[in-house]
Every structure is written in structure tokens, then in C-alpha cells.
Simulated scan of single mutants.
Amino acid sequence: MKITVLGGCGAWPTAEQACSGYLVDHEGFVVLLDPGYATLPRLLELMPAERVDAVLVSHGHPDHCADLNPFLRARALGDAPPSALPVYALPGALDAVLALDNPRMLADSYVLREFEAGDRFEVGPFQVETWGLPHFVPNAGMRLTAAGSVLAYTGDTGPSPEIVTLARDADVLLAEATFPEQVLPEKDAPFLTTARQAGEYAAEAGVRRLVLTHLWPGSDPSTAVAAARHAYSGSLDIATAGMVIETDS
């Protein structure tokens, strides 16, 4: 399994970093996971839009799905539009972004396949398991398995014991870590995760590699790493555009 980071900035993109977006490739089948703000230009640096085989979206906040619109435009309005792309999301999560255009213009470019948190399904060679994790809107944590390799992804989430279940023995845990030590304002603490908490979950789950993502724009990545290190001693990175992770399995 090959994982390529398109962006890992929370809330809005910066001049250096797009929002959440990841390509997951196994034996040539490419999944676009969370096409957040400004991820399409990063994707197009690597491949044409037509090269993607499926899209998975964790939740409906625009920093995780806004670039689905230009991505579908790039597929639908090109000289040789490809076949309809399967797009997987929770019920209603993509209503707003799909309403940006006249429905007829993009109608043939995608097939929406809504799932409920807790569902399991196949996407090409990937087995996908999902968990409902706490956020301001419904959010699905996802576990993608292919040929023995496992990527666990939290989407955006508050503290939950389900994160350990989601991430158990994963090769890679891609974990939201908006703040290093404390969620601010405090009223948001049930809906977001700190880097320290991500490190604790990674240690308890026994993951091989922890990648912190969704850091607050402009924050110092070294503070997130230091916070996660309180509990996690394994391989640890910050999700940055262009990072490529290849699992051994």
C-alpha cells in the first residue's frame, strides 16, 4: 500500500499546505481520501484526475471535501470524460458541495454510494471498515486493508475508545491532531483530538507508524511531535504535502 499526502492543514489551507487529502494506492488502484480545500492542484501535480478510481470522504466539512467539486469538473469537462466515479460518504455529507453546480453538468461523472458509520464494504482491492467518531458533524473513521497492509484514518474526531479499535495493529495511523496539548476553546474538546491524545491512542493500539494531521494553520509542528512523544515511541511524522509512505506488507 502506498499513501501520498496531498495536504494536512486543518480548517483552511495556507500558502504552503493544502487541507486534508490523501491518495491511497494498491496495485494501481487509487483512492482519493478526503479531497479538502486546495488538494486538487497537488493531485494534478502527480496524476490526471481521470487516474483516480474511487473517492472516500470522512465527513462533510469543506476542509475535507470542498475540492470534490473542481475534481469532478476536471473529470466531467475534459476531452474524454471517464466512466462515473464511485464516491463514498455518509448520508447527506456531500449535499452542499454537490449542489455547487447544476446537477446535470456533473451527473455522469460520479455515482454516490452513501454508507452508515459501522458499515463494511469493498472499494477495489481495499476492505473498508468504518466507525462513527465524535465530531461537530457525523464523521466516519476508516480502516483500509489491502493484502495485509492497514491504514487507519480518524477523519476529525474527539476522544473515543473506538479510535483504539480502529487503529489496532495498523501499519499507519493517520490521526487528527488539531492542537498539541489542549483543545481551544475548551467547549470543543469533545469534538477534536490533541497530538498528545493521538500519541496515547497510537501507543495503546500498537500502531507501527503515527502520522499527525489536521494541525491548526500556522502552528509549530515540533510542538505536536513533542506532545505525541509523551506516550508514543514509534515512527512519528507530520502529514505534509508530497510525503509518501509505503507499507512493507
Rank of each mutant, 00 (worst) to 15 (best):
G118D: 05
T157D: 04
A107L: 04
A11P: 15
F136N: 15
Y153T: 14
G28A: 01
E50V: 07
H214Y: 13
T165L: 13
M142R: 10
P185D: 04
R143T: 06
G158P: 02
D63R: 13
L151D: 04
A226Y: 00
T145I: 13
A107Q: 06
A205S: 07
D67H: 02
D220V: 00
E246L: 12
V211G: 07
D67Q: 06
T14Y: 04
A99Q: 06
S235N: 14
A18V: 07
G242M: 02
A239G: 09
T165F: 10
T145W: 11
V55G: 02
T4F: 11
A11D: 15
I238F: 00
Y201A: 11
M47K: 10
K2L: 14
A205P: 01
L166Q: 04
R209Y: 11
R51P: 03
C19K: 12
L43T: 01
P221K: 02
G218D: 06
A96Q: 12
A11Y: 14
L85K: 03
L72I: 01
G124T: 04
A140Q: 03
A195M: 00
Q182A: 15
E116M: 13
A189H: 02
V123T: 09
F121K: 07
P41T: 03
H64Q: 04
T165D: 12
D171L: 09
E200I: 10
H64T: 03
A202M: 06
A239I: 07
L46C: 09
S249I: 15
V172C: 07
S20A: 14
W12I: 15
G78H: 02
V30T: 12
A239K: 12
G92P: 01
T193Y: 01
E246W: 09
V52I: 07
A89W: 02
L184N: 13
H26K: 11
A18W: 03
M1G: 01
D156R: 14
L192Y: 08
P103G: 00
R73K: 14
S109G: 03
A239W: 07
A175P: 02
A11M: 15
S83G: 15
Y88P: 05
H230E: 14
L6H: 03
E176F: 10
A241T: 08
V207H: 06
E200D: 13
T14V: 07
D67N: 05
V24A: 05
I238W: 00
P91W: 08
P125G: 05
L236D: 05
G148P: 00
L68I: 01
E176Y: 10
D220W: 00
L144V: 09
A54N: 03
V128F: 10
V55W: 11
